[in-house]
Structures are given as C-alpha cells and as structure tokens.
Design a protein around this nucleic acid. Structure first.
Length: 419
RNA sequence: GUGAGCGUAGCUCAGUUGGUUAGAGCACUGGACUGUGGCUCCAGAUGUCGGGGGUUCGAGUCCCCUCGCUCACCCCA
C-alpha cells in the first residue's frame, strides 16, 4: 500500500467542509474591507524566497527546493507574501493602486519535522495591504483579524503587539541587546548562548527558566525606537484602543522572517500546544524595494488554518459546522424506477435541492437504513408499484410519516421540502 | 536537525515469563421482518500483528534496521 508522504495529509470530505466554512467566512469578511482574492503560483524561483525571507535563516533552509528540466532552481512556496510582492512589482501595480488590498487562501510548504500544528503542507489564509505607511493600515489589519476570529467564535485568544522599528533603529537595539546578553552569557540556557550570536532578538522569546530573569531585565526595544517609529507605534496603539480592540504590548515579541519592520503582531490561542500562534503578521516597509520595486510601505498577516481549526474545535465549535448534507434521497428498486429517479433528481437539482440518487441493487430496507445513517431527512421511494400508480412516495425520516405525491406534481413536493 | 513514546480488524484497544488456529467492543453485511430505517435478538465476514532482517524447536511478544504516527526541543505560521 502506498501511504501519503511524511507530513502531508488528506483532507477528507468530513473535514474539508470545515475548511470551506472558515475560508468562506474569511472571503466574505475580508471583501467587506475591500480586499480581493489573489492567486499566485505554488512554486517560484528559489531566489525570490531567499531574498525575501532571508537565505541565512533556517526558514530559508527549510524549503522544498528542486530543479526543473532546464536546471532552474525552484521552490514550493513557504509563504505567500514574497509571491504577492513579486506580482505587485512585476505587474507594476504601484502605478495604478493607491493601496492594494488582497487576500489569499492556499497551501504552503516547509520541510520540517512534523508535530502538532506543524505539517509540511499546511494552509494559510492571509492578507496584504500594499502602498500606505499610515498606522491606520496597521489598525485595520489587527482589527480585521480580531473581528474574523470573534465571528468564528474562537475562544481564548489574545493579540500580542510590538514594534521592532525600522532597519536603522532595530540595528542599534540589536547591538545593545547583544552587549547586554554577553554580560550574562553564562546564565543563559545553552540554546540561547548560540542564539545570542545568530539570532539575537530570538533570545527574548525563550521560554526556559534560566533565561527568564535575564530577559526580564533586558533593555526593551521601545527605548531605542527612532522618533518616527515610536510615533507610528503610538498611533497604532491609540487607534486600536479607540476602536476597543484588546491587545497586549509585548516588547519581547519578535518575528522569524527578516523582512518585518515596525508593527508586528501575533494571535495566540490558549488552547493549542507548543505551536500556539494562530496568526502572525506585521509591517514590511522595505520588502517591495528589496524585490526590485519602488520604495513602498506594506503590511500583512497570515493565519494558520490547521491551527485555527484545532483551536476552534477545542473551544467547542463543531467541525461539522460547514457541513451541508443532502436533504433528500431517491430510493429506487429496479431499472425502470432508476430512469424515473434521474428525472425526479434532475428537477430537484434545478430547484437547488441537494439530492442523492440510489445507484445500488440494495433492497428497500437496506436503503432506508443507509438514508438513516446518512441523516438525510427525506426519502423519495420509487418502485414498481409507484410507477404503475403514477406516484412517488415521500417519506419523512424524522416522523416516519409518508404520503403519495402524484408524478409531475412537483409544486406539492417543493411545498413539502421547503418547510 | 535532536530527544522521547507509539504502530495488532474500517475505528478504539486487549493479547500473561516467547507456546497450538490472534481476540473484544463499536462499525459493517445478512436474517428474524420476502417493499419500510432507528430498538432488540441471532448469524457472518474482516488482519501482510507497519515493512525487512535476526535470535529461537517456536516471535504479535526479544534484538537490529527501516518506514510511519505522536509529543517536545529547534524553528516558525
């Protein structure tokens, strides 16, 4: 037997309806803010990702990279932002769009050891707003995520917010932090001793008990933000407060990808395991320029769909939420009734009724059992008797009551089903 | 990449210090009820014991390798 590859999974119909529900809610809500769907390629030139997320980072090393027949290096997308910026630059949308608002849904790929909330192929729903530096963009995005999650009734989540400044103020801070950490190098956990050099800001996010006291006394980035960054962050916070969006400023929040600037945020679910960030995002004011476009400020976020679904389930949202099964089943008992069944099914489908037609040789009793198991409300029985009498029997599976409907009197059938 | 735990029927799991033909519950199929589901009763089918190799008279059980799953670290969405 061939098994699906490691870290990837089938989303069977039972579950895909749950995905569909969340995706529909997202499209619906985001489009209310003026965001339109964009679909970018599943793979890109490897260089695109190396330039955006940073080839030196682990993220850069964890890509599914392959060579095509001409020897070009391509990679399955580990995230969508880079592709969207590439498209923005490639189609010169900066010439026509004042603020380009787009959202996306789709699979992303990362070669990592699978664990809870971390698959090799996973799904993201995300948003990018490209073209404006206004703090109101930041406010809009955070507020939109919160509204989205509340609309789904996601329980027990909170927003962590921080500013990591622009490139120049961040560099200054990073240096100060490194100086400070070096003084306490001996008391840090082994992992952080390494991180201190490679990924200094990441130390702030360490959960180990050894590091905690040192982290608490570490200089915070807020003191090192330049005037412009500081003012920007202030406006974002005030905007959110004025809108009544709850958040906690966490000066230790950092992001993994290199391209973030200024505002960054995360949505944490209290109901998940180690991988508890359901949404992550931030501003990336330099990325468009880095990828060959004109200097253009932008911001975005992305939601991990698998994690979101898990958190929803933990919070009591039924995974059958988006499920809409058939409401009627046409039970046929021989060849003649099968043809009639098609005719009836055709009518019902054109009326928008979800109806399943029997395809088996099973007997009446066995088919009713099946309908019962499928939890379909109505059964339409068509056998020899019914055809001779020119009727079809409509059975209500809930009450067990049934009545004959004259063949062709579909107005009566409609009336019955649209209770 | 590191560590730990797990792989037995479609699902959840028993399976003794290695010992005959590998079990249970749920689900499934059929019957009681020959054209009326759910409840009940009866009967039935179902396994490469994840895969490969080894030890042994004998392996689901012990050893090695491998694949996969799970959780955590790492990393990050």
């Amino acid at each position: 037997m061939i098994h699906s590859p490691r870290g990837v999974e089938d989303i069977l119909p039972r579950r895909s309806s749950f995905y569909q529900w969340v995706e529909r809610e997202a499209s619906f809500l985001f489009s209310r803010y003026g965001y339109e769907e964009i679909r970018t390629p599943t793979f890109e030139e490897t260089n695109l990702f190396l330039r955006s997320i940073g080839g030196e980072t682990d993220a850069g090393k964890n890509m599914y990279t392959f060579q095509d027949k001409k020897g070009r290096s391509l990679s399955l997308r580990p995230e969508a932002t880079a592709s969207i910026i590439r498209a923005y630059v490639q189609h010169k949308l900066y010439r026509e769009e004042d603020l380009w608002r787009v959202y996306y849904l789709g699979s992303m790929f990362r070669y990592e050891r699978p664990q809870r909330g971390r698959l090799r192929e996973f799904h993201q729903i995300g948003v990018e707003a490209i073209g404006q530096a206004s703090p109101w963009v930041d406010v809009e995005l955070v507020e939109m995520v919160v509204r989205f999650f509340k609309g789904l009734s996601l329980p027990r989540f909170y927003i962590r917010l921080n500013s990591i400044g622009c490139r120049s103020c961040r560099a200054g801070y990073e240096e100060k932090l490194k100086e400070y950490l070096k003084l306490h190098l001996g008391s840090l956990c082994p992992v952080c001793r390494e991180r201190c050099e490679v990924n200094t800001l990441r130390v702030l996010d360490c959960k180990s008990d050894e590091c905690q006291p040192i982290i608490k006394k570490a200089p915070g980035i807020e003191e090192y933000l330049c005037e412009a960054c500081s003012a920007h962050f202030e406006k974002v916070r005030r905007g959110l407060e004025d809108l009544g969006v709850e958040f906690t400023v966490d000066s230790h929040l950092v992001r993994g990808l290199d391209y973030y600037t200024r505002t960054i945020f995360e949505t944490i679910s209290c109901d998940l395991g180690a991988q508890d960030a359901v949404c992550g995002g931030g501003r990336y004011d330099d990325l468009v320029e880095d990828l060959g476009g004109p200097a253009t400020p932008a911001m975005g976020f992305s939601i991990g769909v698998e994690r979101l679904l898990e958190a929803l389930e933990k919070g009591g949202v039924e995974s059958s939420r988006g499920k809409e099964g058939a409401v009627a089943y046409i039970l046929t008992l021989d060849g003649r009734s099968q043809i009639k069944g098609y005719e009836l099914a055709g009518f019902m489908r054109s009326e928008g009724v979800k109806v399943e037609l029997n395809m088996s040789q099973r007997g009446l009793s066995s088919q009713l059992k099946l309908v019962n198991r499928k939890k379909i409300r109505w059964t339409l029985i068509l056998g020899e008797k019914e055809i001779e009498e020119g009727i079809v029997i409509l059975r209500d599976m809930d009450s067990g009551k049934q009545e004959a409907i004259e063949w062709g009197r579909w107005d009566r059938l409609k009336e019955k089903l649209k209770v």
